[in-house]
């Protein structure tokens, strides 16, 4: 088994399996542990600069990646004209820098604020390290190689689809520059970490809030009017 298979076939499947099974298990049986673990109460000012930049930056970037995966043809068409290609590349880079700036503030805050240190778990540091490495390699690719968006549609999308359709083609990524390989490998590590860290809060994003009624009422007994259920007599069970 070559390195390519280990990194570009085995790891992706391990990551996906862990992320799916682990997350479902945690959401079903460890509900109390699922939280965004906000620290805003403890420290407010730096969070303003860190959290907003990081979250909006990373959400836009991730949406971009997802779109490349879903509609690679659209991106190819868009990049047909150099002006639009520049626009896309510059926007992506700027958003990445925005996210990195926010992340830097968050890391600084977590390492220096005494109150934040009191609630920091080792997993928080794992998450921050992974994220930092991920954003840095992403920016490196965007700045150092031409052109990231072509690579995305030409190699990245087909490779992910080959994995998702269970016909893995590690050869697609085996000969890419190391930075790119690192970037994708970090993503799978990210998935491995997903169910064991606060990252699970991503999939609990409460979009249902847009539609749900303002007020929620819960009844201990839903069938309040229903007659008392008949209690069967227990005979001979020895209890």
């Amino acid at each position: 088994m070559s390195d390519g298979v280990l990194l570009f076939v085995v790891l992706p499947y391990v990551g996906l399996a862990l992320a799916i099974v682990g997350t479902i298990y945690r959401l079903k049986y460890r509900k109390f542990s699922v939280s965004s673990l906000s620290t805003q109460l403890l420290e407010n000012r730096q969070l303003f600069w860190g959290s907003i930049s990081f979250h909006w930056g990373i959400v836009s970037i991730l949406t971009g990646h997802l779109l490349v995966l879903l509609v690679p043809v659209g991106f190819q068409a868009w990049n047909g004209s150099p002006v639009r290609l520049y626009l896309l590349e510059i926007t992506g880079f700027a958003l990445g820098v925005w996210a990195l700036g926010g992340l830097a503030v968050l890391i600084y805050r977590r390492l220096t604020s005494r109150r934040i240190q009191a609630v920091t778990t080792p997993m928080d540091l794992v998450v921050l390290t992974l994220l930092f490495a991920q954003v840095v390699t992403g920016l490196w690719i965007a700045g150092g190689y031409r052109w990231g968006s072509f690579w995305g549609t030409g190699v990245f999308a087909p490779w992910i689809w080959s994995l998702l359709t269970f016909r893995p083609r590690p050869d697609l990524v085996a000969n890419l520059p190391v930075v790119l390989q690192t970037h994708v490998t970090l993503f799978w590590l990210f998935l491995v970490a997903f169910p064991f860290t606060r990252l699970v809060h991503i999939i609990t994003a409460p979009f249902q809030y847009i539609l749900r009624p303002w007020q929620l009422v819960g009844w201990v007994r839903r069938d309040r009017v229903a007659p008392r259920p008949e209690i069967p007599t227990r005979v001979g069970t020895g209890v």
Partner: peptide
């Protein structure tokens, strides 16, 4: 508080 909770985690007991 109930209305503001995005997750819908807060509720009023009917009883």
């Amino acid at each position: 508080c109930v209305a503001a909770c995005p997750s819908g985690a807060i509720y009023k007991r009917g009883e």
